[in-house]
């Protein structure tokens, strides 16, 4: 079972790196925000996985809050890009 978790974590790290590259390359603001969004999603699953690895139920709270606030951040940036702010 441990190997499966290691495998998932490794793949997540690779995914994080790929989105980081997209963030670096741009070219538009939307791409960067999309990268942030994807990173938040990966981060939520990563935190859930970490909380399973440490076997602490309470860490799930962090994942929940993380997801909510990342979503709001993306909405704010999108509204700014719409020039509505």
């Amino acid at each position: 079972m441990n190997y499966i978790i290691y495998f998932s974590l490794t793949v997540m790290i690779l995914a994080l790196i790929l989105s980081a590259i997209r963030f670096y390359k741009g070219p538009s603001a939307g791409d960067r925000t999309l990268a942030l969004d994807t990173m938040t999603t990966i981060g939520v699953s990563g935190i859930v996985l970490l909380s399973y690895m440490y076997n602490r139920y309470i860490y799930l709270d962090v994942a929940l809050v993380y997801g909510v606030l990342g979503f709001i951040g993306v909405i704010v940036i999108a509204r700014y890009l719409e020039k509505a702010l």
Binding site: I58, Y59, D61, V62, V65, V68, L69, I72, I75, V76
Partner: peptide, 18 residues
């Protein structure tokens, strides 16, 4: 569990911001 007044207050404030 983790969290408390500051975090909860922040979350509510971001809800209003939304």
């Amino acid at each position: 569990s983790p969290g408390g007044g500051f975090q909860g207050g922040t979350i509510i404030a971001t809800g209003f911001l939304l």
